[in-house]
Simulated assay, not measured.
Amino acid sequence: MAQWTLEEAVALQKELRHRVEVRPGPTSPRTVAGLDVAYAEGSDRVAAAVVVLDSTSLLPVRQATAAGLATFPYVPGLFAFRELPTLLEALGKLTVTPDVLVCDGQGLAHPERFGLACHVGLETGLPTIGVAKTLFVGTYDEPGDHRGDWSPLVDDGEVIGRVLRTRAGVKPVFVSVGHLYDLDTATELTLALTPKYRLPETTRAADQLSRLALRAS
Rank of each mutant, 00 (worst) to 15 (best):
L164D: 01
R165M: 08
D149Q: 00
G178W: 07
R165L: 11
G161A: 06
H179Y: 14
S151Y: 05
G169R: 08
S176G: 02
L164I: 02
G178L: 07
V173R: 09
L153R: 04
P152E: 11
R165S: 11
I160S: 01
S176D: 04
S151L: 08
S176W: 08
I160M: 03
K171Q: 14
V163Q: 05
D156I: 00
E158H: 10
L153E: 09
H179C: 10
D156H: 15
H179V: 07
D149S: 14
D155T: 06
V163A: 12
V159Y: 02
T166F: 06
S176P: 03
V163C: 06
V175E: 09
I160H: 03
W150A: 15
K171E: 14
H179W: 08
G157N: 13
G157C: 12
G161P: 10
P152A: 06
L164Q: 04
D149M: 05
I160Q: 03
G161F: 10
S176L: 08
D149V: 01
D156S: 15
R167C: 09
A168F: 00
F174I: 11
G161Q: 11
G178R: 06
D155W: 14
V159S: 04
L164S: 02
T166K: 11
K171G: 03
L180M: 07
A168I: 00
L164N: 03
K171W: 02
R167K: 13
D156V: 08
V163I: 14
P152Y: 06
F174K: 12
T166R: 11
I160A: 01
V173Y: 10
R167W: 03
H179D: 14
D155C: 09
P172Q: 12
V159C: 09
R162F: 09
A168Q: 14
V173Q: 10
I160P: 00
V173I: 06
R165Y: 03
E158K: 13
L164C: 05
S176F: 06
G169I: 11
R162V: 14
D156F: 03
V170W: 07
T166H: 04
T166Q: 06
G169H: 04
G161R: 04
F174P: 01
D155P: 00
R167E: 05
D155R: 14
S176T: 00
E158N: 08
V154G: 09
G169N: 09
P152H: 02
G178P: 07
R162C: 01
D155L: 14
P152I: 09
